[in-house]
Design a protein around this nucleic acid. Structure first.
Lengths: 228, 228, 228, 228
DNA sequence: AATGAATGAGTTTTCATTCAT
DNA sequence: GATGAATGAAAACTCATTCAT
């Protein structure tokens, strides 16, 4: 019966190459981890999602749950790095199509740099929105569940409050709800603050004046322009 | 013996008011959760950290581990909201000292708004850096452990890469390492992108063009000014 | 009442005599134990049912949960013994009131003995049905809950099967459902078998022939008469 | 070593079929439950008794302690039902050997019916005495422990008292202790009363007159015959 | 005498992980 | 190579019991 004469049936669980298996397992793991979070996800879940048995997950997933997550994180982080790197490489390539670049012009010609940044961000966001699961594994423990909701709500409250403050300042088209317009700006602002807090925790300055100054330098000109 | 002259010693196993106990338990929980993450932290750990027995943690912590975390999240989020709210209220109060404000002047006079934002951010960062544990519970599942490290590393790589790109553009004082200077800017930038991604996932637009456009509007003027 | 100057207020939680307290606690315990079973009932439940604090339950209930149950069992068993004892005493008392008993007459005069037994059984059942909680504590661990239900169902199946067999034999009034009539007889029969099994386990014979013979001797004449 | 010549030793941790495992687990559970009662028995106890690990008990025992007990109850109740059912089927089969049965004779011919009942009871008791554990799970929560003893004692007192009453009435061979002879009869009588009380609680009449009447109808003729 | 507060000890249940086939 | 079966270890949660007031 192992020598099943019916090939279709025999191939139902065909032997895959190690690379294919690993990809299969990692894909399943990213999915499961992003839905349930690392701890609430069980190796059984991963195995089922991958359509293989649990020992397979161990064989092709690094041998332990932690290592499996580690590999997921690495792979997804690399994925997010691609657009950034391309933006880097594009300095001469991708941005050139726009027009004839004079070699004489310095690398940081105004419009060129702006285009490059915009282009890079666009690619970054495109990757993000098309790989929500992977992003989730990197930036959130779980996207669902009562705890994830609670965290999300808490953060939302902060963003909303900031949006409320900004709304009073921004110039909005007549008829538009200023809060609605201010919300993404607030989300970006709060996110930037979190990013700086991470930097601070990782060894950067922890002087509130310095941190606030840095953030102001980055965003104030833009915000100022958004005001009437 | 009841009139013990050394109250501190006598009170080793003292009966506390429910409010005190709840604070004691929440403080311990925030600490433990921020170090080990929700799942790796055990109720025993929380009890030990609080210096009470496990049933106390259940009695004063909401009756379940999830509810305990929920209360931590709420309390810490409220703490972070304080500086933001004060920034709001300060429009007339805190910012007035700056000078004589003519009632005729609009509320969003340029320098005033800038000062207010800077002031709010400063307070926000001050709270953040002085309550790292609370911030951690809200924004990171764990600050330590091999997984937290892996996530941190993955993010760092992204920030570093972005910093590398920015470094080529920024004007830095002679002798300074441009990458070092660009790093916090990159951290803020990446954080802002994450914030927008959250907004996108929560119902905002998921068009990369829109997202990139929003972020550019916010940060490009500032970045442009940072360039020579 | 203990010379309290403010009787009404003081009596809200008045100090009861130890005997009253004990009765209060035992009453509550019997109730709680009969509803939830010994283990599923908590001392908190007993305290709440009794309207006192938990330490009171310990003070007046014997000092431990087991001892409390033991006291419940004893009290309720004594209660069930009363009708039996009265039946015994009634040989000369309750059944004789009619007239002077001649010493010559044997104690086991036919109709007299029958009346006495019927009288005793009636009193026994009267006590049983009016003290279901107490009976429950003695004969069932719990009267409710999914497990009690399961046990009850299992027993019912046996009784029903026996009733089915008996129904084929009994003579019933025209139009009556023989199974309905046979059911209480079956219940008594199965109960008698259980009683003998208990006796057997407690040291009586365990020869099935002997056990069956004993039961046949007791019930066959009656059953035979119930057949046409 | 895979070709171990001593299979018994080699199979110490053998893989069993699910059916075998389930039986193994249920057997152990019935045993443990019958000794310690449901609540005092721990899943560890069951696992140890079965010689397997606790997860096995969960895998093959229904997934929860309650479900495990439920399965025990069902299995043991089915076991007890077998002799009853056989008694039913034996109407023509098992009782035939006795003699030449004329088809013309009605199914409920006196001696035949009596033989059938006796036969059924004998089988019932045989099952009971050879499966004390199973019977215990069904009819007693625990067979040992201080509480089980207390309940047993309380019931015994009632049976003894009844036996004392009966002893005065029964005709016994010279030299025999009437109480000893009356005890199993009393046990059956009290058991029958309990059975009727169950029937009463399950929806039957709760009129003591009716209950006493039913029981008298069943047992009085037999008792009467036991008297001189 | 009476109680609210506190705890030690134990139990059910779940998984990551590994053999034997 | 692949799997079903099996387990060791841990963690949430409860409760009988006892102080300190």
């Amino acid at each position: 019966m192992t020598t099943d004469p019916a090939p279709a049936a025999a191939q139902r669980r065909r032997r895959l190459s190690p690379e294919q298996r690993e990809r299969q397992v990692l894909d399943a793991a990213v999915r499961v981890f992003s839905r349930s979070g690392f701890h609430d996800a069980s190796m059984d879940d991963v195995a089922e999602q991958a359509g293989v048995s649990k020992p397979m997950v161990y064989t092709h997933g690094g041998g332990s749950k932690e290592e499996l997550l580690r590999r997921c994180i690495r792979r997804e982080a690399d994925r997010l790095l691609v657009p950034v790197s391309q933006a880097a490489g594009s300095r001469t390539a991708a941005s050139l199509p726009t027009g004839a670049r004079t070699p004489a012009a310095p690398a940081d010609t105004g419009p060129d740099a702006e285009h490059r940044l915009r282009h890079g961000l666009r690619a970054f966001f495109a990757t993000l929105t098309s790989h929500r699961d992977g992003w989730s594994v990197l930036y959130r423990q779980a996207r669902a569940g009562s705890i994830a909701d609670e965290v999300h709500d808490a953060r939302s409250r902060i963003v909303e409050r900031v949006a409320g403050l900004l709304a009073d300042e921004l110039a909005v088209p007549a008829g538009a709800d200023p809060v609605v317009i201010a919300t993404p700006v607030a989300a970006a602002l709060v996110g930037a603050a979190e990013g700086l807090a991470d930097w601070s925790a990782a060894g950067g300055s922890d002087d509130p004046d310095v941190l606030a100054g840095l953030l102001m330098t980055l965003v104030w000109p833009g915000l100022d322009r958004l005001r009437g």
